Amino acid sequence: MRNDEAIDIIKPALTKARFEHTLRVADTAAELANLYHVSTEKVELAAIFHDYAKFKPLDEMKQFILDSQLPNDLLDYHHEVWHGPVASVIVAEQFGIKDQEISDAIRYHTTGKANLGAMGMVVFLADYIEPGRSIPGVDEVRAMAREDLFHACLMVSRNTLQFLLSKNTTIYPDSFHAYNYFLSQLKKA
Rank of each mutant, 00 (worst) to 15 (best):
P57Q: 14
W82L: 11
I48L: 13
A126T: 06
G84T: 09
N72W: 00
A47N: 10
K56P: 00
A17F: 08
R107Q: 14
R133S: 15
L116N: 01
S134V: 09
G137Q: 12
S134F: 01
V38E: 14
G132W: 09
A26N: 05
Y108G: 07
I48K: 01
S88A: 15
M121L: 02
G117T: 01
I90A: 06
L45T: 12
A126G: 09
G96P: 09
S88G: 12
A17R: 15
T28M: 12
K54E: 09
I97W: 06
A33E: 05
Y128P: 01
S88Y: 10
G117A: 02
I90H: 03
H109F: 06
A26F: 02
K56M: 15
A126F: 03
I135T: 12
L32E: 09
D73V: 07
V38I: 15
S134R: 11
S88K: 08
T28H: 07
P136L: 08
G132A: 05
D73G: 03
R107E: 10
E41F: 07
N115H: 11
K113I: 04
H83E: 11
A26G: 07
D73S: 07
F19W: 06
K62E: 15
A26K: 14
M121P: 00
H83A: 09
A53S: 14
V89M: 09
Q100A: 15
A118D: 13
F49Q: 10
D99A: 09
V123F: 00
Q63I: 00
H83Q: 08
Y52A: 05
V25I: 13
P85A: 11
I65W: 01
P57R: 15
P136M: 04
A26H: 04
Q69T: 06
V91D: 11
E44D: 02
K42Q: 13
G120S: 03
D76N: 15
N115F: 04
I135V: 09
F19P: 08
A53Y: 10
L35P: 01
